[in-house]
Simulated scan of single mutants.
Amino acid sequence: MRAGAVALLSAACTALLAAGAPASATATRTTVTGTAATGVPLPYRMADTGGGDQLITARAPGTSATTGTVSWWQRHHGRWRRAGSAPARFGSGGLTEGRTRVQGTSTTPTGLYGLPFGFGTGPAPAGTVLPYRRIGSDSWWCQDNASASYNRWVRPLPPDCAARESERLADYPEQYARALVIAFNYRHPVRGRGAGIFLHVNGEGATAGCVSVPAGAMARILAWVRPAARPHIAIGTADGPTALTRY
């Protein structure tokens, strides 16, 4: 076949493919604010988003990073759109695969997790419909591996949960002014993997394994989350084995 004919046939095939391309493929040719260079919003590029219509993503440049970005996404009529974004902080030990994390390493566990309830020393932001618990002087998060209440909110501290192995929530009025429980190691806790991983308000620096954001962003997230939308949070890195898109 002549070169001119080949070129003509190639152009015709390209036109036909473009006409039949799905919307997601077409979107890759358009740059969208807050998305990757491909123009495809992050949730579309993920292996799993939890099956709901709300997703929070917490992304770090790499596993040694202690800062990154939290974004929250809403799916409406099958299309994901970013609802907000804020700078984030991670554990002082960086990030690590959640399934093999070790307690006490100050690492933030990567993975996809539910968001069972919110809590705080302050009141829930206006518009909050997610279950929200006010912190009292006897509110604790049990982190004692020997306790039946391991990785649970307790009030008061049960006899089998040592105070030295747990966190008295009222001792952190700035960080826990408002927070969301991240259901890491929560449904069926594995002893020694870790407890008390939250999305909360920034403190002075990196966290002990949680994800933190500015106070204003935390308030907006709490007011935005809707249990009926089955919200989840995905934590990961930009690439590599713990890439956010793998979860």
Score class of each variant (00 low, 15 high):
Arg99Gln: 13
Arg226Trp: 07
Arg220Pro: 02
Arg193Asn: 01
Gln175Lys: 13
Ala179Gln: 03
Tyr176Pro: 05
Ser212Met: 05
Ala27Lys: 08
Arg164Leu: 03
Arg99Cys: 00
Leu244Ser: 08
Asp48Cys: 04
Gly194Glu: 06
Gly34Ser: 05
Ala162Trp: 08
Trp224Gln: 05
Ile235Pro: 00
Gly111Leu: 12
Arg168Phe: 08
Ala148Thr: 14
Thr38Asn: 15
Thr38Arg: 02
Ile197Ala: 02
Arg81Cys: 05
Ser24Gln: 09
Met1Gly: 13
Glu97Cys: 08
Thr242Gly: 01
Ala19Asn: 07
Arg79Leu: 15
Ala215Tyr: 10
Gly196Pro: 00
Tyr176Gly: 04
Trp153Val: 09
Thr26Cys: 08
Ile221Glu: 00
Ser212Arg: 01
Ala162Lys: 14
Arg152Met: 00
Gly52Asn: 13
Gly98Tyr: 04
Arg59Ile: 14
Thr49Ala: 13
His76Ala: 11
Leu130Asn: 09
Arg45Ile: 01
Thr207Gln: 07
Gly94Lys: 01
Thr28Asn: 06
Ala25Val: 15
Gln74Glu: 14
Val190Ile: 14
Leu130Gln: 10
Ala7Val: 10
Ala19Leu: 15
Arg133Lys: 12
Ala177Tyr: 11
Leu157Ile: 03
Asp171Leu: 13
Asp144Asn: 06
Arg220Asn: 14
Arg134Trp: 00
Ser71Arg: 15
Thr128Ile: 07
Arg152Ala: 15
Pro43Glu: 07
Arg152Phe: 06
Gly127Asp: 06
Thr57Arg: 02
Leu9Glu: 14
Gly84Val: 01
Gly104Asp: 03
Gly205Phe: 02
Trp224His: 10
Arg220Ser: 13
Ala86Val: 06
Ala3His: 05
